[in-house]
Design a protein around this nucleic acid. Structure first.
Lengths: 195, 195, 195, 195
DNA sequence: AATGAATGAGGGTTCATTCAT
DNA sequence: GATGAATGAACCCTCATTCAT
């Protein structure tokens, strides 16, 4: 890559960074192209030169987010942590993955395909590995389907990352939630092994 | 109530209905007063006559939603269903209650007070009754806190009502989720008693 | 006048009173028909029944003001006060007469005629009497024209009633102004005879 | 300054000119951004690009007016004209200075400060010089306060510039007014030295 | 290639006025 | 005749996008 393209790539990244931060802080709707341009130190028109439209920039941002989130997740799964600890970390992992960016983009076929790929192939694969580990270590009963486990994980993730939850971050409450995750309303909480 | 006021009330309701639907579909930001007016078959200015401002309409919509949701919920809790059935219904009950409408309204003191009242008094009361019933019937272990139970319920509710879930409404998946609710990842699913 | 018409006249007056007060406080532009109606305790449509339009109401208000102002002024001139005192009172007399109501009405021929009548006939008549009195008592030099005297009086009236003047109502400043009125920049102030 | 900025500055000035004229003719309230834009030959949105808001444009217009008026006034005072001529010119000098633009802007702290500076420092300074000159040349009696002189000048300025006065611009009337300025109602007019 | 300027389309809101009862 | 409801036109303003340099 020559110095010309490198400088271009640098500017694109500055735009991406600015956009991501503003999008996550104020939402895509409340973030104007002008604000992004100003924060990135470029002219508004440049954003159009690079990304075509606001939706184009959102798409780019979203895909980047998805991929980097995927990478982090994959790294986590590939560690050798004991199952309960892995579970806790997976659940509490910041996941701008999917929630931060509004779903109205889903009309875009490229995005739709990516998300489908993600949900149909990549995510199930990783979750099935998670479940397999859980089974091997005796924490997950055999008959649980992957779909149910995926939903269950997402559910916990949403709950744990809910603003109210984050605000009153309460150790006991979190511990109870993790117990519920393993044993449900009826089951017996086990003695804590990791904390 | 004379015919005059009745017709007024009717129009107000048409506006409310249109607003609710559009707010829930597109979000409050992406819904313009013009759209609402058109869908309700009134002039935009009429909405201002009735509700003062867009925020006023949002407030009205939100409060209505909250109260009618509360009423339905209360009725449900007061039935005599066995605990697992009650749990399923509570969780699958449509609850635009709080999630559908954006939280930036929370600046309004009236709304804030209502929500606080709801979360500090009404909701805990009902959940504590729910838990008590679960304990009596042997489905909930004694040491579970009300806070954790509230969170857990909300979590399931959000999951069950998640668009994707609703789209692929899958009997088995739901059943698995309910099992997870009672017994977690590790526990033993019991033979289904209600289905 | 029967009871019917009397009640009608009463309502009209309530509207007039409300309108005058609001017009003078906020200006005619910033006063809405709805506000007037509410303050007067009638329906907005009633104002249209009585006065035809907002401009109609403004016209009515303006004429009333003009006439009542005229009456007060006339009464003052007909007293027997010594000239300097008369002058002070004339100048400091609250004169919503002409300034309070915006001049864009002047397009209306009826108003225009009234104002012309006022400025061409009634006001010169009264001022000429004032000047005559001033001359008789030795306070006004003989060669001063009526037009100039009219302007001069208005000028002082505006100055004395200027908000800033009213705010810092300063006895000495006022006294100086009255001296200037009689003797100008160059002349000798006389010993105060009235205060 | 390159051609780019020059053209921008030109457009800004076109907007300023259009705004000033319309503001003075119809008042700031009755002048819409659309009208200004049309008269200036730009898009309404451009006005917002340049001045931020209607209030911003008003502020700019007002400050420009104030400063340019000040400059003209200062130049006048610094000439060597004899006192009566100076006085005439000062009074008849077009002074949109302060009266033309509505006072509701005074909420803006920047404007408020400017006006205060003007009325507390700049204007008194110039008037005191005027008075000093008048005294030296024997036209102003020694005991007259600066406050009174300021008021007196303003008063004449308003009168001379009053629309009706301008309409019927009458040489004799004006001359009488200037005599009144120097000698009041009672004093002796001097033989005219300048005309 | 990069930019600052320019804008059209649309948003929320107000209000004098008319309409239906 | 009196009213509350209803509205069209206009206002200020924002912003994604295009244009001229």
């Amino acid at each position: 890559m020559n110095g010309f393209k490198r400088r271009t790539e640098l500017k694109k990244d500055k735009i991406r960074t600015a956009a991501l931060e503003l999008f996550c802080t104020y939402g895509t709707d409340k973030t104007s192209i002008n604000e992004i341009a100003q924060k990135a130190g470029v002219a508004p028109a440049s954003i159009y030169n690079y990304f075509g439209s606001k939706e184009g920039l959102m798409k780019d941002t979203f895909i980047n987010l998805l991929e980097s989130g995927w990478k982090a997740k994959k790294e986590l799964w590939e560690t050798d942590l004991p199952f309960p600890e892995l579970m806790k970390r997976a659940v509490s992992m910041k996941d701008d993955f999917i929630d931060q960016i509004n779903l109205e983009l889903l009309t875009d076929p490229e995005i739709k395909k990516l998300i489908d790929d993600f949900y149909e192939r990549r995510y199930p694969y990783i979750v099935s590995q998670f479940i397999e580990k859980g089974r091997r270590e005796g924490y997950i009963r055999r008959e649980l389907s992957i779909e149910a486990a995926m939903l269950y994980l997402n559910m916990y993730q949403n709950a744990v990352q809910h603003p109210e939850m984050l605000k009153n971050r309460n150790k006991n409450l979190l511990k109870e939630l993790y117990d519920l995750m393993l044993y449900g309303l009826a089951g017996q909480p086990i003695a804590d092994k990791t904390e």
